[in-house]
């Protein structure tokens, strides 16, 4: 936390982020189409310090999105709790914002970008709402596109509009669900830096859910690795790379490679029933290995 991107003196005035987000013993099952309840989250616990950027990685289908929806208050956990400071999170709280993966659906095509951003603001006059939304668009470098429609912009720009929407209120915790998964690789690196810059400037805590280990290591203070379904935490890696980070320098840092390997080992080492220790409750012995996991046959890591 010592040297944070542009943190010095630019933090948004008046907003204090000093509470910890605590996820404790969260379990969640979801009903499948055939009516049976499938366990998605098996006992997930972790904490996010004020201003910390935590990445959650896991194999696809692990239940990352379910975890994120539970943390955000979109889903109630079956067991366990999510607390922020002393406050329990039930419906999406005012201090929490979400960036969804699919900007083409989360931005509404019948609203101009300004209105899409202003949608997240309430409890103020129209003028102030629009002013603030315009400010948020300015902040992500899209001030000139306030009057355009989202579908007139490129994918990366649209996700920046979504980012502006998430950050236009007084946000203390930003939750991102694979926010860069739907854009091309170059745009992706730009967006990653954009998010790091805003995080540095505004000082919120952030949870980044991703299946991209490199992205998690590049961005986060700490990476939490999830097992495949039902998801539990199999380990975490503190990322001690210096900030500000930079795509060229950081990714060429030997330490980056080491950390990348550590996280990958955690992620790759799980997913087979035997590796995680005791067999998990829920679906019986049948190894529920999703098709995307066949790579683990070769790389046999702990």
């Amino acid at each position: 936390m010592a040297s944070r991107w542009g943190r010095e003196g630019i933090a948004a005035p008046g907003v204090r982020h000093e509470r910890r987000l605590v996820v404790r013993g969260v379990r969640k099952g979801l009903r499948t189409a055939s009516g049976e309840v499938r366990e998605i989250l098996a006992d997930v616990s972790f904490e996010v310090a004020p201003g910390e950027l935590v990445a959650v990685v896991g194999p696809s289908g692990a239940g990352k999105t379910t975890l994120l929806r539970t943390i955000s208050g979109l889903l109630a956990p079956d067991e366990g709790e999510v607390r922020y400071g002393g406050e329990a999170v039930d419906d999406v709280p005012a201090w929490l914002s979400i960036v969804f993966q699919d900007y083409s659906k989360s931005l509404f095509p019948w609203m101009r970008n300004l209105d899409n951003v202003a949608l997240a603001l309430s409890g103020m006059g129209r003028h102030e709402r629009e002013q603030r939304a315009a400010g948020a668009l300015e902040r992500v470098g899209l001030g000139a596109f306030a009057r355009s429609y989202p579908w007139e912009l490129s994918g990366g720009m649209q996700q920046r509009v979504a980012l502006a929407r998430a950050l236009c209120g007084e946000v203390s915790v930003l939750v991102m669900d694979e926010p860069f998964a739907s854009v091309d690789a170059l745009t992706r690196t730009q967006l990653e830096d954009e998010v790091l810059r805003l995080w540095g400037e505004m000082g919120f805590s952030a949870i980044l859910v991703t299946h991209d280990v490199g992205e998690a290591v590049y961005m986060a203070d700490r990476v939490i690795a999830l097992s495949s379904r039902p998801a539990r935490i199999v380990g975490e890696v503190a990322i001690d790379l210096p900030r500000p980070r930079d795509h060229l320098a950081t990714r060429q840092d030997p330490r980056f490679g080491q950390l990348y390997g550590e996280v990958l080992a955690l992620v790759e080492g799980v997913g087979r029933p035997a590796a995680g220790g005791a067999p998990l409750p829920g679906p019986p012995a049948a190894p529920a290995v999703p098709p995307a996991r066949h790579r683990q046959e070769e790389g046999d890591l702990p």
């Binding site: 929806r69 955000s72 979109l74 419906d91 999406v92 005012a94 914002s97 979400i98 969804f100 699919d102 659906k105 989360s106 509404f108 609203m111 949608l119 997240a120 309430s122 929407r165």
Partner: peptide, 19 residues
């Protein structure tokens, strides 16, 4: 996802329907 966005933006019911 539209319903998620409605909740994430903390829209009142009336505003959710209208907007």
């Amino acid at each position: 996802l539209v319903h998620d966005v409605v909740r994430a933006c903390k829209l009142s019911r009336a505003r959710a329907f209208r907007r």
